[in-house]
Amino acid sequence: MFWAERLGLAAIARRMRQWSLSRFPRSRSVTLTQNRIYILPTGSGFGFLVLLLLLLLMAINYENNLTYAFTFLLASLFVISILHTYGNLAGLKLNVQSGQNCFKGEYAGFTLQLHAAPGRDHEQLSLKWETGPELTLDLTDQRMTQVELSCPAPARGWLDPGPLRLQTRFPLGLFRAWTWIDTGLTALVYPYPQPCRLPGGGAGDSDDREGLTYIQGTDEYQGLSRYQPGVSPGQIAWKNYARGQGLYVKDYASLISSELWLDWENWPGGGVEARLSGICYWVLEFSTRQQPFGLRLPGFTLPPGTGETHKLRALQALALFGKETV
């Protein structure tokens, strides 16, 4: 309802959206039916009506029956195109998949699945969160498509992208059919990883690079164990795999003399966000090096460890720090 917004009717538009959202419960799978599809002429649709009026005047004034016929054909087309625009959305099934966590300042992706109505094509469907880029796609040759629709993540914590707007102006741009869907999707926004020096109280004493070699040097190769999903590619014994021996994972046992702690209390200066950004950077850094680390935040302690889950728990704690209980 862009023309409406331009006319200063934004408040009405917003209220209408609230109302339409309140009519349907949050759901992970939505099939678009007539009671949730709205349709109104677009600006160019009103332009078309003006054209029709001009043509009708011409027909009346010149008493020209062929101009009447021409006008009526276009008028019928106008009406029929309502059904085509509506049909372009109707029957479409939307499956809500998941939200991808991201770092502050990036775009969080939300995975959505669109299923075409049986035996029908959908062209030029536009998906958009309240903010963020619009994504336009066709659902013609394939019956189903999975898209990642992104939404800017300006702040740390849980990101609610708001209702999803699914709309189309196909086929003639005279009408815009749209629907609002409350997907209930959220994504976690981690602090932006800001490279910084590791404070003295931790392990990596002075120079990053030195710390790196030191830490890697402490790893001791233990042997191979069977591959399990979720292991980082860096740990896979590719040589063995290349020899056709199957997927194995190299086991390292870090000789941890002094445990590494990323400690909020010992972190040097800066505001809350700056501190979190620094810690976040090192969480990622240690995880890449597979260096076990612990995290200590006010009211939250994560004992030292490694692995994907460990990293995610740490990042989540950082993301939600001060926002709510973890």
């Binding site: 009346i60 010149y62 009447y68 054909l73």
Partner: peptide, 27 residues
């Protein structure tokens, strides 16, 4: 689109009342 518009055009053509010219513009 046009094929489906034809029947409605026909109905409008047959039933839409014809009124005289609103103002005269000679050709």
């Amino acid at each position: 689109l046009l094929l489906f518009s034809l029947p409605m055009m026909l109905v409008l053509f047959l039933l839409f009342p014809r009124i005289g010219p609103l103002w005269s513009i000679p050709l």
